[in-house]
Design a protein around this nucleic acid. Structure first.
Length: 399
DNA sequence: ATGCATGAGCA
DNA sequence: GCTCATGCATA
């Protein structure tokens, strides 16, 4: 069905990290109808502007304003509904995106550094900075478990819930624990973890045949055959089913009084018990799973893992067991990664450029970086992330 | 909840 | 250098 455009660009179908997602479809997904796009929808209805990417780059900073006004105007025309600045209707929020940016651009003084003035004095520093947090940072409040309703299930008192041995996490891991150093460590297993490698393959044998080759006749045939054989090739890959599961998962998780972060961590324990190869997951991932903001393949790969966790967690909740857990060790502070923050004006420029050319060459990226006084790598990564988001939105749009 | 980043695997 | 899966950091 949704035979994804099989990877645009370079990476091939096999490019996935984990075998789980072995085949390629990559669009991500926002299956939910309730999905609220984090990005302006304008992109979807906005054809490529008439100006070229070079226009963008050649534009003098000083003229930035005028230039963007034009872009936005064009964009607004295409989106057919933009009343030039100061649009009183604050809630017409439909074609925000570039459109709304038009106003902003008109009002904001874009002060991009002209030619590589290294010492720029941009409003912010966009580099990776690390700092030591030796002196044990603040105690870090433990992320309250979201214990809302504990009706049907036995009420897990907070204490219990945090000591549910293997599945439920214990006291929180201080955020400062995630040092930059540890990050690397974690990367090791996370890449080889849950979805990568062999790990999950065995858990959901069924869906493998589903997507990969949706675009492939042979695959489709295989899928059909599987279906006939009772292997429900689609059951696991059906966006609707995934969406339903994600919703169920979230509700039951909350009922258990477990946070997203808890789930991720306890997944590891579960892994050791029954899902070898599965590592811990982060709060981010759990959150994205629940909100369907992962790629379709990613959703498919994670589902069996979370499903197993859910079952185990509920089973344990039934016999409410307690168990002293390993005390969290507080590693000495280490370097923490500082998140780069791209200022609004620069971001608008990037978005405007992206609308024209989502995949700028290395040179273009360098030019853009220089113009915006951002590091080339920051710009490159921004485009990569933007593409990922766009894929998700597109997929969501057609489902 | 989400922005910016990393790293594996591939071309 | 790209895609993809994921994560830390942060709004």
């Amino acid at each position: 069905m949704y035979s994804p455009d099989k990877m645009m660009g370079a990476k091939g179908p096999t490019g996935l990290h984990g075998p789980i997602t072995s085949t390629g479809a990559c669009f991500a997904g926002r299956y939910s109808p309730t999905y609220r796009s984090p990005e302006p929808m304008s992109r979807r209805c906005m054809p490529n502007p008439s100006y070229s990417e070079d226009d963008l780059l050649n534009q003098k900073c000083e003229n930035g304003r005028k230039y963007y006004s034009r872009i936005l105007e064009d964009a607004s025309i295409m989106c057919n509904s933009w009343s030039p600045r100061h649009n009183g209707d604050l809630f017409s929020g439909l074609n925000d995106g570039l459109i709304s940016r038009a106003e902003a651009l008109a009002a904001v003084d874009i002060k991009h550094q002209g030619t590589g003035g290294p010492g720029g004095l941009p409003q912010l520093k966009h580099d990776m900075m690390y700092h030591h947090s030796m002196g044990a940072p603040p105690p870090v409040s433990r992320p309250h478990h979201q214990m809302g309703h504990m009706d049907s299930l036995e009420m897990l008192d907070p204490i219990t819930s945090s000591s549910m041995t293997t599945l439920t996490p214990m006291a929180e891991t201080p955020s400062h624990m995630h040092s930059y150093g540890m990050n690397h460590v974690m990367n090791h297993h996370h890449h080889g973890g849950p979805l990568s490698g062999h790990s999950a393959p065995g858990h959901h044998p069924g869906h493998h045949g589903g997507h990969p080759g949706a675009h492939h006749p042979a695959m489709a045939a295989a899928a059909a055959a599987a279906a006939v054989a009772g292997l429900h090739p689609d059951a696991d890959t059906d966006p609707r089913e995934l969406e339903a599961f994600a919703e169920r998962f979230k509700q039951r998780r909350i009922k258990l009084g477990v946070t997203q972060a808890d789930v991720g961590k306890s997944c590891k324990a579960l892994a050791n018990l029954k899902l070898p190869g599965v590592g811990a997951l982060s709060q981010s991932t759990i959150c994205r799973f629940e909100s369907l903001t992962l790629s379709h393949n990613n959703m498919i790969a994670l589902k069996p893992i979370l499903q197993a966790w859910l079952e185990e967690a509920e089973a344990q909740a039934k016999n409410k067991r307690r168990d002293p857990d390993a005390p969290s060790v507080l590693p000495a502070g280490e370097k923490k990664r500082k998140r780069t923050s791209i200022a609004a004006p620069e971001k608008r420029s990037l978005e405007a450029y992206f609308a024209v050319q989502p995949r700028p060459s290395g040179e273009k990226i360098a030019a853009i970086a220089e113009k915006l006084d951002l590091k080339k790598n920051v710009v490159r990564v921004w485009f990569c992330n933007q593409r990922q988001k766009q894929k998700r939105m597109k997929f969501a749009a057609q489902h």
